[in-house]
């Protein structure tokens, strides 16, 4: 029953919608379209996110958008977000300078189940900008290396100039205890590595399916081809983790924008076990080029 006597203060009522301030302490242009922002909550309090979780970043007047953390929670003094230039807000975020403030609220959602992954082999499959949330997990595993078995990283980019986090990638490659497979679909004269989409090296990777958890993030086209390769390797559907992108508005399972059949991606995801997506028709995106038919 509604309590007619208890109307809380205004800031408590809107607390879900109201961002905290965070200061930009670093900014790097990674590619033409991608900027990396390093941020620090103005309150000095840690956000304490898990790899795979996201937050809502906003600039008053430009609005708000969900972005996955791309730094590891083991990096405690600050956090990082990778912003792709796609609209008014993200373009304004690209214009930020160190010292500027942004609004943040979160973290939200279920990230990668790192506790369940302890002791297991982890197969990372990253396509394009999908490397951003996976970098959070990879660097987490790098800092907690003994908690995990094999760490296998398969990362595909469209072309060499669109590869993100090149320094991290080189560091992962240099480690004896990480197995790395890098590929580009459209090589140029500088590229000496593998050629093809991410499924090409993935097919070569030998795993022990019973011991392996796969973490997959990439463009929509990628998921089903990767799923097919992983299932061909006899992996259990429950051990395949997909992180899905939706347009979260509220982050608390209310606004309806991220609904995937009966699930709210912002609450139940964005990281899902493949098992959860089976039979949910809206998990795999479809569209008709002929709009009139819709």
């Amino acid at each position: 029953m509604i309590d007619h006597d208890a109307v809380p203060p205004a800031e408590d009522i809107t607390r879900f919608y109201q961002p905290e301030l965070a200061r930009v302490i670093g900014k790097w242009q990674m590619t033409e379209m991608m900027v990396l922002l390093r941020l620090q909550p103005a309150s000095g309090e840690r956000l304490d996110h898990a790899p795979g979780q996201f937050l809502q970043i906003s600039l008053p007047g430009y609005g708000e958008a969900p972005i996955s953390f791309c730094s590891s929670p083991t990096q405690t003094d600050s956090f990082e977000l990778c912003v792709q230039s796609v609209g008014n807000l993200s373009e304004a975020l690209h214009d930020l300078r160190p010292g500027d403030f942004v609004g943040v609220r979160g973290p939200y959602g279920h990230g990668f189940p790192v506790e369940d992954m302890r002791g297991r082999d982890v197969l990372i499959v990253a396509g394009g900008i999908g490397i951003a949330p996976l970098r959070s997990l990879i660097n987490y595993m790098a800092d907690r290396r003994r908690d995990f078995g094999r760490v296998i990283i398969v990362y595909g980019a469209r072309n060499p100039s669109e590869r993100l986090f090149v320094e991290d990638v080189e560091a992962w490659d240099a480690r004896d205890d990480f197995e790395t497979w890098f590929t580009v679909d459209e090589p140029d004269e500088t590229w000496t590595g593998m050629t093809g989409v991410v499924t090409v090296p993935l097919r070569e990777v030998e795993i022990d399916p019973a011991r392996t958890t796969a973490a997959v993030v990439g463009p929509p086209v990628m998921y089903r081809y990767v799923a097919m390769e992983l299932l061909n390797k006899q992996m259990a559907e429950d051990d395949i983790l997909f992180s899905l992108e939706r347009r979260f508005k509220c982050g608390m399972g209310k606004c309806g924008h991220c609904q995937l059949n009966d699930l709210y991606v912002c609450q139940d995801g964005p990281v899902f076990r493949y098992t959860q997506l089976i039979g949910r028709t809206e998990a795999i995106e479809v569209w008709a080029p002929d709009e009139q038919k819709g």
Partner: peptide
């Protein structure tokens, strides 16, 4: 200055499930 607004929305509108990059998870009517 300005304000952040919350307003009614409709899942029947084509852009309701639109994601960055033009992906739409309920593109068809």
């Amino acid at each position: 200055g300005g304000r952040r607004m919350r307003s009614w929305d409709s899942c029947q509108l084509a852009e309701f499930a639109l994601v960055a990059g033009g992906h739409n998870f309920r593109r068809l009517r």
